[in-house]
């Protein structure tokens, strides 16, 4: 049934992604692909994997943005611009348009935990859900002809055959920088909810009216380029050298 659950789901399982911590290593992309190509539903196919025009289905991708403050400068690598690595996967929206547009009932949001899934045996591969998603969370698998999306590793998080530490989404388990966190965002006392409250976690494109479950934590403030200017200039001259270094400085000048 492609109508959304009428009440807020008792649990809102999702991810919190810390943009201050992500180093853009793409390990989560690889581990996601690896886990999900052998897990839930059809494999995540690649087209021409060894050819010139490689492409394939991924459920998680990392974009990298340059953010330039108002009046900031971009000078080589040391400008005011800052680089933000930006992991993006399904946000498991509360008001998920990808669910309601589905003509077959393949796309659904689970009433118990809010995970948005695709029942691939019902999917006709019309692609309308991918059109409806402003975040690009859904990609059609060109080999299977069905829509693929992040399952929040539904086949891991409830999987009692795995060790408890592994019962989190593959991307979260893999992240070497600990930039990805998994938990119940419907429970205000959960670690992820507290993190969101403390760090000012936010929704992506709130104007789209989708009410995403996943939250992003903003990069922490950084001092501007001008504030570090003093030390940059110091590296070029020897003013203020003392003792042995003052002597060495003098000797080197004489040569």
């Amino acid at each position: 049934m492609t109508s959304l659950p009428s009440l807020p789901t008792p649990k809102k399982l999702g991810l919190v992604i810390d943009l201050d911590v992500c180093v853009g290593c793409h390990a989560c992309v690889i581990s996601c692909k690896e886990w999900n190509t052998g897990g839930y539903g059809a494999a995540l196919s690649d087209q021409q994997p060894y050819g010139a025009d490689v492409s394939g289905t991924f459920l998680n991708r990392i974009h990298t943005f340059e953010v330039v403050p108002e009046g900031g400068q971009v000078i080589g690598e040391a400008g005011d611009a800052r680089i933000v690595h930006f992991p993006k996967s399904c946000l498991h929206c509360e008001d998920a348009p990808c669910v309601t547009v589905c003509p077959t009932g393949a796309s659904y949001k689970r009433a118990e935990d809010g995970i948005v899934l695709v029942d691939e045996s019902k999917c006709i591969g019309c692609g309308l859900c991918a059109w409806s998603c402003a975040y690009g969370a859904r990609e059609m698998d060109l080999a299977a002809g069905v829509m693929k999306k992040c399952t929040l590793c539904v086949d891991r998080i409830y999987n009692e055959t795995l060790k408890e530490i592994d019962r989190v989404p593959s991307c979260v388990r893999t992240c070497p920088a600990n930039a990805r966190h998994y938990g119940d965002l419907g429970d205000p006392t959960s670690d992820v909810s507290r993190m969101v409250a403390e760090r000012g976690g936010y929704d992506l494109m709130p104007e789209q009216g989708t009410r995403p479950t996943n939250k992003y934590l903003p990069p922490r403030p950084r001092k501007p380029l001008a504030a570090s200017a003093g030390s940059a200039v110091l590296a070029e001259n020897t003013d203020g050298a003392k003792g042995f270094f003052a002597w060495l400085d003098g000797m080197l000048d004489r040569i």
Binding site: H63, T64, F65, E66, V67, V68, P69, E70, G72, A81, R82, I83, P218, P219
Partner: peptide
């Protein structure tokens, strides 16, 4: 923070 541009 500022103006956002795709870097990669």
């Amino acid at each position: 923070i500022g103006h956002v541009r795709l870097f990669e």
